[in-house]
Amino acid sequence: MSTELLMRQETWNITYTHALGETASWFYVQLRDHAKLYGKRDAKSGRVLIPPRSFSDQTLEPTTDWVEVGPGGVIETFSIVYEEFNGLPPPPYAFGYVKLDGADTAIGGYFKGVDLSDPKAASAKLKIGTRVTTKFAEKRAGDVLDFWFESDAG
């Protein structure tokens, strides 16, 4: 059977209004109003979790006190994206995870101030173990994009 094969283009575009809940709301208010990052302590293990959550996914106990973390930290992993994806920023960009001083887990964020034109050279500058400092935007919306990381080595 030979027939003309037809296509149809469809788009999903749905708007959600997500409630962030008490824990994330408190975290983002501190970030927005005071340019500070806090983790939440799991009293059972003593570990400070960031992003903060209301319970520990390891001990399964509720988290208790807030602990200020950073602004210094160390790179735990990264990637440098060179491909363009729909709905994501124009490449290249570098992002990854940083263990902030005082925290036990790592939080995601962009790495800025690194020349990404040569992948090999750029990846060496973002090597695991590199010390970084958190930088905060002048105007903050209460979002993870309010902060990013820059290497202490420049």
Partner: peptide, 22 residues
Amino acid sequence: DPTYERQLPLGTINMLAMSAVR
């Protein structure tokens, strides 16, 4: 999750690229 991580350009490729780096 839209609370903490969606705003980052995470996808399965860079998620596993970060596994490769480690």
